[in-house]
């Protein structure tokens, strides 16, 4: 899909990965273009989170390559990847619950060049609620506020690639809509986003491209309109068996 001249923001090439003897991902090829939102959909246990773990360096693939802006970063530690601009918000817990809001923001400054003052200005400017609660423990915030705090990392760290794992989990629909609007805005500002979602409908609206993962393989890939009908079928494992 990608034109050969443009380097992909993030690319997985022939990735096989798993935990111990259990293989989860089989021969994954996925390209995140330099702009836009790619949504990764799939049923429970399809391997979505594992794919994000591989992309963020938390799980080392048993074979295959991970490329960040064309550079092979396979096997790099997550902290090194984070320092060079890969921002990954893990599933359901993108904040440190026993640290105060301002301590959390302090943690967003580990990427070289990111200053504490700028982080606080941006975060508190975008989410005034966080400014009111800066001395509170992050774990005491509401789910929506926690997710705002987590997303403030994506806003302030000026990442080259943003990986989001099920940010809508357990949140009220209003908050989810707000979050996805924010994701869209971040993408429009030029940061490529890889979004993992279990609930297809919301993700299909915000995404530019959709990949559907099932049983550790990418079964479908294309524009939201192209794959919309195939998504449900893939969720039910009906494809290919007939």
């Amino acid at each position: 899909m990608t034109a050969p001249v443009v380097t992909a923001a993030l690319e997985l090439r022939g990735v096989n990965a798993g935990y111990g003897r259990v293989q989860v991902l089989y021969d994954i090829n996925l390209v995140l273009p330099p702009r836009g939102v790619v949504a990764l959909l799939g049923p429970n246990g399809a391997g979505k989170s594992t794919l994000l773990r591989v992309a963020s360096g938390r799980t080392v693939p048993s074979s295959g390559q991970v490329l960040l802006r064309g550079n092979d970063v396979t096997g790099r530690s997550p902290e090194r990847l984070a320092r060079v601009g890969l921002c990954s918000v893990p599933e359901g817990r993108g904040v440190f619950p026993n640290l105060t809001v301002s301590d959390n923001l302090r943690m967003w400054t580990f990427r070289p060049g990111v200053r504490r003052k700028d982080v606080e200005e941006t975060a508190y400017g975008r989410f005034p609620r966080l400014a009111e609660r800066r001395r509170q423990l992050a774990g005491r915030l509401s789910g929506g506020e926690q997710q705002m705090l987590a997303m403030s990392r994506a806003l302030t760290a000026d990442p080259d690639v943003l990986l989001l794992d099920e940010i809508s989990m357990g949140l009220a629909p209003v908050v989810v809509a707000e979050l996805f609007a924010l994701v869209r805005q971040i993408a429009d500002d030029g940061t490529p986003v890889l979004l993992v979602e279990q609930f297809a409908r919301t993700a299909l609206e915000v995404a530019d491209e959709v990949a559907v993962l099932s049983q550790g393989r990418i079964r479908l890939h294309g524009a939201p309109d192209q794959v919309r009908d195939g998504v449900l079928a893939t969720y039910l494992h009906a494809e290919g068996s007939a």
């Binding site: 938390r58 440190f96 302090r106 943690m107």
Partner: peptide, 27 residues
């Protein structure tokens, strides 16, 4: 532990080791 970034990172690693790595602090 409360004022320096390294100190905050120490407490952050206690809280969530993996997330600390994802922010760029080396656990």
């Amino acid at each position: 532990l409360h004022w320096s970034r390294t100190g905050v990172a120490l407490r952050a690693v206690v809280d969530d080791r993996e997330l600390a790595a994802l922010t760029g602090a080396s656990p």
